[in-house]
Amino acid sequence: MKKCHIAYLACTAALLGTGLGAAPPVAGHTVHVVRPGESIQKAVDAAQPGDTVLLTFGTYHESVQVNTPGLTLRGMGRATVIEPDPSVATSTATGTTSAGGRARKAANSCAADGNGICVVGTKDRIVKGVTVASLTVTGFTRTGVFSTATDGLTVRNVTAVKNGVWGIATERSVRGVFRHNTARDNGDAGLFLANTIKEEQGATDTGGTVVEHNRLEGNRIGVTVRRLRDLTVARNHLTGNCAAVFVVGDENKPKAGLVTVRENRIERNNKSCPKTARLAALQGSGIVLTGAEDSLVTRNVIKDNAGTSPLSGGIVLFKSFVGTTSDRNRITGNVLRNNSPADLINTDTGKGNTFEGNSCRESKPAGLC
């Protein structure tokens, strides 16, 4: 393994020194190096399964769509920046772009939909084993990094900042890993994970998707888990959002649930966000479970979240807005301080929810601490 790593570094160093567009194969795979002013999409389209597209420092003005299994798209850290092309206006309604006053078909649906990086499979062709890493994606009208129909997608060390809707979002996908990312000041959720975005259907099993060690700050919601099962949200730091963590279900079957939310640090999520067509105004929400079942919320530190929304408070169990109850959820071993209107709140009429071993001072109804 060490020899492979050394060979990879030597190959990359040689490539950067010579200015060639692709490195010799290492263990059967090729490194395609892209510099500012060159096309990322062209390198991605030329890559084979298992190849790496390596972006050097600098700013790139384009959207990138990945359909190749096993591909790694990697920058060199936060100073590798992907932004929209300012010379191209995108219409999500028509799927066309215009440049210099002339309309033309969008190069890919990623750009047409206002996204930065898209990893896109289909119902009949799931894209497996893609990695997006070590770069910044910012300023897109919809999502920084979006994925659909993927298996084993890894998004790590990505900074998603000031995108119009979501920082990083995924749907119809399984076994994802979202680790060591920063999502800040995005219009809706920093990290958004759903069964499907545009259709109504029951919760789907993610096969153990993991969201951990991320920093989520200044978004409407830090992490939203919508209509999913078998997923872990762990060891994240969430601050300055309107709400930190939402686990959301509805009347569809199967119900959302089997979600573990553990060992997160959740503090001062007191940004104020107005109501939307789907959700009440938000402020001061730590962890909210609504319409979810058989989930575990444990060993989180939740402090100084305060607001007057129906969803405000440290940990809140809330009967969903479509009337679906939360059932058999366990709230145990959490540390809660100075959350308002209370540290623990249960306004749900569901059955089998338990509150045990939490360190807190005030609950509604009384007696949960």
Rank of each mutant, 00 (worst) to 15 (best):
Val248Gln: 10
Asn300Ala: 12
Leu317Glu: 12
Asp45His: 03
Val34Gly: 05
Ala281Leu: 05
Phe178Pro: 06
Leu191Pro: 03
Ile266Asn: 03
Thr92Arg: 07
Arg278Met: 12
Phe318Ala: 08
Ser98Ile: 01
Ser109Gly: 08
Asn346Ile: 00
Arg265Tyr: 11
Thr52Cys: 09
Val225Cys: 11
Ser312Asp: 05
Thr92Tyr: 06
Thr148Cys: 12
Gly350Thr: 06
Leu368Glu: 05
Gly323Ala: 00
Thr52Asn: 08
Asn214Val: 13
Val155Trp: 01
Val137Trp: 07
Gln48Arg: 14
Ile197Leu: 03
Lys364Ile: 15
Ile302Val: 15
Ala107Val: 08
Thr154Met: 11
Asn252Met: 11
Arg125Gln: 15
Cys360Glu: 08
Asn346Cys: 02
Gly249Phe: 06
Gly208Pro: 06
Glu362Thr: 15
Val26Phe: 13
Cys369Arg: 05
Glu62Phe: 05
Phe321Pro: 06
Ala23Arg: 12
Leu55Asp: 03
Gly95Val: 07
His61Val: 05
Arg74Tyr: 02
Thr325Tyr: 12
Gly176His: 08
Ala189Phe: 09
Gly176Lys: 05
Ala281Gln: 11
Arg184Leu: 13
Val223Met: 00
Arg184Thr: 13
Leu55Gln: 02
Phe140Val: 11
Leu9Trp: 13
Pro274Tyr: 03
Glu83Phe: 09
Asp51His: 05
Pro341Gln: 09
Asn269Phe: 08
Asp124Gln: 14
Ser109Asp: 11
Gly58Ile: 05
Gly190Asn: 05
Thr354Ser: 15
Ile266Asp: 04
Asp85Phe: 06
Ala194Leu: 01
Asn305His: 10
Gly21Asp: 15
Gly291Ala: 04
Val31Leu: 15
Pro341Asp: 09
Gly187Gln: 15
Val261Tyr: 01
Cys369Gly: 06
Ala281Met: 07
Arg278Ile: 10
Asn339Val: 01
Ile82Asn: 03
Thr260Arg: 05
Glu83Leu: 15
Val316Asn: 06
Lys255Leu: 07
Gly114Asp: 02
Ala43Asp: 09
His5Ser: 14
